[in-house]
Design a protein around this nucleic acid. Structure first.
Lengths: 138, 138
DNA sequence: CTAAGTGCAAAATGTTTGCATACTT
DNA sequence: AAGTATGCAAACATTTTGCACTTAG
C-alpha cells in the first residue's frame, strides 16, 4: 500500500495539492485541472494516486453524498506531528463544507472511546446539519 | 412533495418497513425482497418511494460511502413525538453500522449550536471510526 | 531487467429520468 | 375525467478494472 516509485504524475499531483492545503476537491476537479496543463494525468491515475495518498494519510476523503463525487482535502505531513484535529460540518442546504477546530469536540473522541468502545476517526467524520447563513436566511 | 395517492406499492412497502424498524437496508435490498414476493415493485418505484418517505420523515437515509449504496432505516411516526435521538457509528473496517443512544452525545447538539452556530442533524450525521471488535481482533 | 505505474477504453455500480401505461380519486 | 404513480429501458455520473505500454529503480 506504500507507493514505491516516484513518478512524474505523482510528483506534479503532490506539488499541486501542496498549493491548495485545506481546500476541497474532487477527483474530477483534479482531472480537469491537469487537462488544461501542459502535462495531463489520466483519470485512472488520478483515482489511483488519490487512493494511495489517502492510505498514506496525506489527504483525507469525505463521502458527502451518494450522488455527489467524493471530496478530498490535502493535509500534508503536519497532521502526523500531533497537529490540531479538525472536524467538518456539511450544510445540508447550501452544501458548504466547514472546517471546525474545537477542543471541546475533541472530548467526544475520548467519550466515544470510554463509553462506547468506539475509536472515532475525526478525519472521516462529518457533521451534517444546517449552517448559520442558511438558518438565518429562512 | 407529499404523496397524494395510496398505491399498492406504497402500502406493501410501508407494511414491510414497519416489520423492520431500526434495521438498515438499501434500495437494492428492497428490490430484492419484493422480487421474491408475489407482487414485486419496480426499482424506479422503490427509489421514488424511498425518497418520498425520506421527505415525509418516516425513514432516514445515510450516505455511508460513495461506492456503497445509500442506507435507509425505518423510523416511523414515533420520532416526531420527541422520541429519543439516535446517533450512528460506522466502522471503517467491518462496515458495521451501530446505533447509539446517548444523552451525553445529545449535548454536542447544543454545543454545536451555541459555539459554532451549526444546527446539527443527528439523523444524518454518522461517526466514522473503528468498532470494538475490529480494534481487538488486530 | 523487473517491478510498478500509466492511460485508454470498457465495465461496473448505484441512481435518475423519459415516457407510455395503469391506477386513484 | 384528471391527476398521479408505475415500470421498463435507457441515460447518467462516478469510480473501478483489464490490459498493453511506459517508466523508475
Amino acid at each position: 500500500m506504500k507507493s514505491k516509485y516516484k513518478t512524474r504524475q505523482r510528483e506534479i499531483l503532490l506539488d499541486y495539492l501542496k498549493t491548495i492545503p485545506g481546500k476541497h476537491f474532487t477527483a474530477g476537479d483534479i482531472c480537469e485541472y491537469f487537462k488544461s496543463q501542459e502535462s495531463p494525468i489520466g483519470q485512472s491515475t488520478v483515482y489511483r494516486q488519490l487512493e494511495e495518498l489517502v492510505n498514506e494519510g496525506l489527504i483525507n476523503k469525505y463521502n458527502l453524498s451518494a450522488s455527489d463525487p467524493a471530496c478530498f482535502e490535502y493535509i500534508g505531513e503536519n497532521v502526523h506531528s500531533g497537529g490540531e484535529v479538525c472536524f467538518h460540518c456539511k450544510c445540508e442546504k447550501c452544501g458548504k463544507l466547514i472546517h471546525l477546530h474545537c477542543d471541546e469536540l475533541i472530548e467526544i473522541q475520548s467519550h466515544m472511546m470510554e463509553k462506547h468502545q468506539f475509536m472515532l476517526d475525526p478525519l472521516r467524520t462529518v457533521f451534517y446539519g444546517i449552517c448559520e447563513e442558511c438558518r438565518c436566511s429562512e
